[in-house]
Simulated assay, not measured.
Amino acid sequence: MGEDAAPRMKLAVPWGHIAAKLWGSRQGPPVLCLHGWLDNANSFDRLIPLLPKDFHYVAMDFGGHGLSSHYSPGLPYYQQNFVIEVQRVVAALKWNRFSIMGHSFGEGVCGHYGRSYSCTFPEMVDKLILLDRHFPLLLTEPTESENLLTYKRRMIEHTLQIEASQKPQRVLSPEEMLQGQSTASISSAGTCLCLSSGSCRPTS
């Protein structure tokens, strides 16, 4: 069950796709594997074949890593974005409860402190496996931590809900907008022409 033997999959996201590798039984208890910073899913190639075969292992490539699409220019690679990516993958796989195995930076994304997935969605996580832990605990007052996690969870759920309800939109080039092409598909109430000077004026 080496690198070549592991099937691959791609999950669609707004900026492209998230790539993942699969091992084990599809009917087994699910385990999501998160790699370290500037690494990829291949970092689990030698470990997972040594683990019990009756689990279903999915090792994802974070955005901008491995075979996953890079973020759009100007969008930073914040840890919170990777926490949202985990929720995207879990939703696509239709997992209700699963275990997480995180290595290095992946441990920080899935781990046991305030900005992590397991603290934001604790009911989703069955078991937590941390490899090469280096992220410190987030020391805050209990009430403050609870309020922060509630806010982050609502933000993630709201973001994904909005994306799911929207239809893909065609992006017009500045040339098309200035030439007045495809004006029928543009809402005059929310459209503006961005001029070379950097100013912006409504079209209506």
Rank of each mutant, 00 (worst) to 15 (best):
E3M: 06
D4Y: 14
D4P: 09
A5H: 12
A6M: 14
M9A: 06
V13E: 00
G16A: 06
G16N: 13
I18F: 08
A19H: 15
S25R: 08
Q27C: 00
G28Q: 07
V31C: 02
C33N: 03
D39Q: 08
N42I: 05
S43C: 14
S43W: 15
S43P: 08
F44H: 04
D45T: 14
I48D: 01
L51S: 03
D54H: 15
Y57N: 01
F62D: 07
F62S: 03
G63L: 13
L67S: 10
H70Y: 15
Y71R: 12
P73T: 13
P73A: 15
G74C: 10
G74L: 07
L75P: 00
P76F: 12
Y77Q: 07
Y77N: 13
Y77E: 05
Y78W: 11
Q79M: 10
Q80K: 03
Q80M: 06
N81H: 14
F82H: 07
F82L: 10
E85N: 14
E85H: 09
V86Y: 06
R88Q: 05
V89G: 02
V90D: 05
A91Q: 15
L93S: 00
L93D: 01
K94V: 01
N96M: 00
R97V: 04
I100D: 01
F105H: 07
G106Q: 03
E107T: 14
G108S: 12
C110K: 02
G111H: 13
Y113I: 01
Y113M: 05
G114K: 04
Y117I: 02
Y117L: 02
Y117C: 00
C119F: 09
M124P: 01
V125Q: 03
K127V: 05
I129L: 13
L130S: 14
R133H: 09
H134N: 03
L137Q: 15
L139E: 12
T140E: 15
P142D: 09
T143H: 10
S145A: 15
E146K: 15
N147I: 13
T150M: 11
Y151T: 14
M155P: 00
I156L: 07
T159P: 00
Q166T: 13
Q166F: 06
Q169N: 04
R170P: 01
R170Y: 11
L172A: 11
Q179A: 11
G180M: 02
Q181A: 13
Q181R: 15
S182L: 08
S185K: 04
S187G: 11
S188W: 12
C192E: 12
L195H: 10
L195A: 02
S196E: 08
S196P: 03
S197Q: 12
G198M: 07
S199F: 14
C200H: 11
C200I: 14
R201G: 04
P202R: 14
T203E: 01
T203Q: 04
T203K: 06
